[in-house]
Design a protein around this nucleic acid. Structure first.
Length: 749
DNA sequence: CTTGAGAGGTTTTTT
DNA sequence: ACCTCTCAAG
């Protein structure tokens, strides 16, 4: 995603001539509510769009309708999403509906649009023209650097925590000089925040949150720019509105001014990102602050059979504070929701593998089947089972292309070619591949830069002049200069090639034992550069090599997780990653208290409701068939833990369920469930013939015991040998304790 | 500068 | 259990 300056927009003069039949075909097939939403009059509106209710279709058709009926020109509207994928999807659908060139339209992510605005007004925003964007790992190392200079104890101030603090401040719209801090610890945090921002400013870099905040501040401060965009974007459309954070909402309000129309689409029941700052409350605020007359509810679901939908509705009805919505479907009842109670995680995995094989044998495409879990750690056991059963699968999540170390290294060389004063890039590759610049010399260089108040590159130049080829700092300076010279006149792919070879990266990985993948990725980077140029060459200004734009693209769009998208493979992902997707068949695994809902969620306010929404999202991914499974025990953090079935299972009416195995699982006594009822704290009788049992074990796992001080508990695990045996006991509200058998006087209950 | 042992941590994620 | 990071020895 990159910027196009005002004036070179391509679609302003496009004249739309529409026939009624064209419009009919565009609006055809919409239900009453969808049609109402699409053709709302010129005022702000909130669309409550349930899962599978045709949300994206309504959003894009609304845009097409606004354009086609001449209410707005393509460049007079702004549509914002959270992911690049969603933005791309919107543009693709739009081009299939209207004969327009979407280039120049302001459709993109919050970050992409802010970047575009800041590029266009970099001077007013106080940024260098070539400002670079820090991704999360760049930001973390920048913070570590600041803390080192400031002599901050990173035991008391873990850099990750500092990063979280800085980002959440910015997402609340706060700066170091506006954030409140009354105790010494937060005052120190604030100082680091301040120094970090100063360092970023010196180095000409912005982090993700900064893109938004900087843009927001620019619009707030500069009336000319603000009024320009306010008078331009008469229509603003927001996707996944329930996921907006405070700053994003403020930004929208600023852009909307008093007269523009904001069309916000969202679903409070699918708000699952509070942990990263999303504020569902923005929906109610929006309703009030924009005096919304029209809350249109899209409640007809086109995705799932009614048994699945009824299960989802039953689950979500346990939440309070909903805006209120009940999905229905015209599709039939369909099959019952299948429930499997596994003995342990391996049993669960084998069950899933067997069932997938069966489905595949019946003709279901593997890519139409998804396996969902609450946390990534759960995929391991399942992957093992799938692998032994020769079932192809694809795991979503993990490192994205532009986040891989070798790619980040190559990109750092490209960044230095573009601007050698880029300290972040310099630090990344100054000694990679190693060229004899150790921690000591690096520290000296950083000191020199600080003393001279200049970039690392300047300091290096001052130290070695033009540098001599070879090792050490001399060699590095000479190398970068040489690369800059050689890059002149090259195309972007040629530069990428230069960055991977001349830097010595390729040579380095060729010597590595397991470097083949990395070399393949480096080659892929050259392909990525070719693709980038092909996709964007009309948007690039004449004479531009596209390097700067490519660097921005890499920061803002981290690329696909994995390359082989096309193959027919079972889809494995977290429930979060599944949001927005749909599958013919869905397995939701690990439905145990403590795992789903996750035990940590109970520490957060409204955490349990968010977990329930997560469950709602998971269930509503399924079209035809839904499997739910839980295990009596599973390996977690190297220990066997015993879990009781998730409360979400109890929330599904029995009539909708089909229990696939008749193994009787003793349910816990729910009558005393007012106290901490979460986590693996709850237990059940473990099978007494557990094969994990060791002979030296005095108590069985699952055995109920009593302790003089902690009261009643249950044995969860044990370690050590006969002489030094320790048992882990869950004492419920007293918590989990490790006790030495020798001293603890336990009584069997 | 590279290597290996030990410690610590382990919900979810996009930009 | 397993992965990442740190620190001391080679």
């Amino acid at each position: 995603m990159f910027f196009i300056l005002e004036g070179c927009l391509t679609c302003d003069n496009l004249v739309m001539t529409i026939s009624n039949s064209q419009q009919d075909s565009m609006l055809g097939g919409l239900n009453d509510k969808q049609l109402e939403a699409v053709t709302l009059p010129a005022q702000s509106a909130l669309i409550l769009a349930g899962a599978g209710s045709g949300k994206t279709r309504v959003l894009t058709t609304r845009i097409a309708w606004l354009i086609q009926t001449g209410q707005v020109s393509p460049t007079g509207l702004l549509a914002v999403t959270f992911t690049n994928k969603a933005a791309k999807e919107m543009l693709t659908r739009l081009t299939s509906m209207l004969p327009i060139n979407t280039r120049g339209m302001w459709v993109g992510t919050f970050h992409g649009l802010c970047n575009r605005l800041l590029r266009a007004h970099y001077r007013e925003a106080g940024l260098p023209q070539t400002f670079q964007i820090l991704d999360t790992s760049d930001q973390l190392s920048a913070i570590k650097r600041v803390m080192k200079v400031m002599n901050v104890d990173d035991e008391k101030f873990p850099p990750k925590q500092v990063m979280g603090y800085i980002n959440s401040c910015k997402e609340e719209g706060l700066r170091a000089h506006t954030v409140e801090a009354y105790d010494p610890h937060s005052q120190r945090m604030r100082e680091i925040f301040d120094e970090y921002d100063k360092q970023c400013q010196r180095e000409g870099v912005v982090d993700f949150a900064e893109l938004l905040l900087r843009c927001y501040e620019l619009l707030g401060r500069d009336a000319n720019i603000r009024e320009h965009y306010q008078s331009r974007f008469r229509y603003i459309l927001v996707d996944e509105f329930q996921d907006t954070n405070r700053l994003q909402y403020q930004w929208l309000k600023l852009l909307a001014g008093h007269h523009n129309c904001v069309f916000a689409v969202g679903d409070d029941d699918q708000s699952i990102y509070a942990f990263r700052g999303a504020r569902v409350g923005n929906m109610r605020d929006f309703e009030k602050e924009f005096s919304i007359q029209n809350v249109v509810k899209l409640e007809q679901n086109y995705r799932s059979h009614s048994n699945i939908l009824d299960a989802a509705n039953a689950i979500i009805s346990n939440n309070n504070n909903r805006l209120g919505k009940n999905l229905w479907t015209a599709a039939g009842q369909g099959e019952p929701v299948r429930l499997y109670e596994a003995y342990n995680d391996i049993d669960e995995a084998n069950f899933i593998a067997d069932e997938v094989k069966m489905l595949h044998g019946e003709g279901w495409a593997l890519s139409d089947i998804a396996l969902l879990y609450r946390s990534n750690a759960q995929s391991r056991v399942i992957e093992h089972a799938l692998f032994s059963n020769n079932i192809p699968y694809r795991v979503y999540g993990g490192l994205r292309f532009f986040e891989r170390a070798e790619i980040k290294h190559a990109m750092a060389y490209l960044r230095l070619v573009s601007n050698p004063e880029d300290d972040v890039a310099m630090l990344r590759v100054i000694n990679f591949p190693t060229r004899g610049i150790g921690a000591r010399s690096l520290e000296q260089l950083q000191e020199a830069a600080r003393a001279q108040n200049c970039s690392l590159w300047q300091a290096a130049i001052n130290k070695v002049g033009n540098g001599k080829p070879g090792k050490g700092l001399d060699g590095f300076v000479a190398l970068i200069k040489q690369m800059q010279d050689d890059a002149k006149g090259l195309t972007l792919p040629e530069m990428a090639e230069l960055a991977t070879t001349m830097s010595g990266l390729k040579g380095f990985y060729q010597l590595e034992k397991e470097g083949e993948d990395r070399i393949a990725n480096l080659d892929e980077l050259i392909n990525a550069a070719v693709t980038f140029i092909n996709n964007n060459h009309d948007a690039l200004e004449d004479g531009s090599d596209g390097l700067l734009e490519f660097l921005t693209h890499a920061s803002l769009e981290a690329g696909e997780h994995q390359a082989d998208v096309g193959a027919d493979a079972l889809q494995l992902m977290t429930v979060h990653a599944a949001k927005g997707l749909e599958f013919q068949a869905v397995f939701i695994s690990g439905l145990e208290e403590g795992l789903f809902p996750h035990e940590n969620s109970t520490f957060e306010s409204n955490g349990l409701e968010e977990e329930r929404r997560l469950m709602y999202v998971a269930v509503t991914r399924a079209r035809k068939r839904l499997y739910l499974s839980h295990a009596q025990s599973r390996m977690l953090h190297g220990q066997i833990r015993y879990g009781i079935p998730s409360r979400f299972l109890d929330e599904i009416p029995d009539a909708l369920l089909k229990r696939l195995n008749s193994r009787q699982v003793q349910k816990p006594n729910m009558s005393n469930s007012s106290m901490s009822n979460y986590g693996y704290g709850q237990y059940q009788s473990a099978p007494s013939n557990s094969s994990e049992q060791k002979s030296a074990m005095p108590w069985k796992i699952g055995q109920a015991v009593a302790h003089a001080k902690f009261g009643q508990g249950v044995v969860v695990s044990y370690e050590g040998n006969a002489n030094d045996m320790r048992v882990q006991i869950n004492f419920g509200r007293e918590g989990m304790k490790w006790l030495a058998m020798e001293y603890a006087k336990l009584e069997q209950v």
